[in-house]
């Protein structure tokens, strides 16, 4: 099949509502024919490929609050849906409190694509390969969703239902992503394995986050989230529990990595085989967890020496 031979998008009507009420109302009335969009970097590609053919594209970028990025030292970071990834990366608050999210954003495509692509679009698109989903899940992100009934808040851990499938209902618009303050001393790593060094979609993506927790038997809690190895981003719960329950050592990290590899159910596709992906989950989980563990220890030492 020859794709994308023509620069023209199929015909549609461009709609720019002025208020959330108007937008939700329009999307509800034209349920089957209308689609909201932000950067359009997923929507336009799928329209050119003939996968999507909406009659109306509803530009929600100009709705109130959509362009705002706001940090509250008491509660956390709110990223308006229309804030593009370069702005997320450049924001001082992201670099200081959520550097893992900045790293994940930096792994997406190219600089000029990230001037358009948004984190909330990445989330709503719900591709298991979405590079920023792991970081948003690791920080216990919450999506603020608007409808004519008002605002509802959805934990991201409950949001993803399958490739391109989420709990979003017709007439609903994701308005912002909220990331609560990270646990004190958090350290994170995102490892993206692509077919080339930069700019490809992930074959396997591994997000790891760790922080001290006196309540855990090991004294630490870890988060481990896998991309491109299941129908949704996969939280490797057994691996996380393993490192909370027993002392963190090279052996327990290997054990956690093995559990992560067992938990995933990848498929064969153009980017790689299921067998390769499973093996890479094991290797890269071990690498990511080791790297987080080293950062946690380095930080501990710095804290002591600076006393």
């Amino acid at each position: 099949m020859i794709r994308n031979t023509h620069p023209t998008l199929p015909e549609f009507e461009y709609i720019r509502p002025q208020s959330v009420g108007e937008a939700c109302d329009f999307l509800t009335r034209h349920a089957a024919d209308a689609r909201p969009f932000l950067g359009g970097t997923d929507v336009f590609v799928r329209m050119r490929d003939g996968v999507l053919n909406p009659k109306y594209l509803v530009d929600v970028k100009a709705l109130p609050g959509m362009q705002e990025i706001r940090f509250d030292p008491q509660s956390g970071l709110t990223i308006g849906a229309a804030v593009n990834m370069n702005r997320v990366i450049a924001a001082a608050e992201t670099r200081e409190h959520y550097p893992l999210l900045a790293d994940a954003c930096r792994s997406v495509a190219s600089y000029q694509l990230r001037s358009r692509a948004t984190v909330v679009g990445n989330i709503c698109n719900a591709s298991p390969a979405g590079d920023t989903l792991g970081a948003c899940l690791a920080f216990n992100g919450v999506l603020h969703i608007q409808s004519s009934q008002g605002v509802r808040q959805e934990l991201l851990s409950n949001f993803f239902r399958g490739p391109g499938k989420t709990t979003l209902q017709t007439g609903e618009i994701a308005a912002a992503l909220f990331l609560p303050l990270p646990h004190a001393g958090s350290q994170g790593v995102y490892i993206k394995l692509g077919r080339n060094k930069l700019s490809d979609l992930s074959l396997v993506g591994v997000t790891a986050l760790g922080y001290p927790d006196p309540g855990a038997p090991s004294g630490y809690r870890f988060r481990l989230i896998l991309a491109s190895v299941a129908p949704t981003p996969l939280i490797a719960k057994q691996a996380e529990d393993c490192l909370a329950a027993q002392p963190v050592t090279p052996a327990s990290i290997q054990e956690a990595a093995r559990l992560a590899s067992e938990a995933c159910a990848p498929i064969d596709d153009v980017r790689g085989s299921a067998r390769y992906r499973k093996q890479m989950v094991k290797n890269l989980s071990a690498r990511a967890l080791t790297s987080v563990w080293e950062k946690l220890n380095r930080r501990g030492q710095n804290d002591i020496s600076s006393d």
């Binding site: 994308n4 023509h6 336009f44 590609v45 000029q112 694509l113 001037s115």
Partner: peptide, 23 residues
């Protein structure tokens, strides 16, 4: 026409964008 090659890159309000991916 897919945001991959960058040949259509222009500056929009000072930032580079793939002009094939902007309406």
């Amino acid at each position: 026409s897919a945001g991959e090659c960058g040949a259509c890159t222009v500056l929009m309000n000072g930032e580079p964008v793939n002009s094939c991916m902007v309406l």
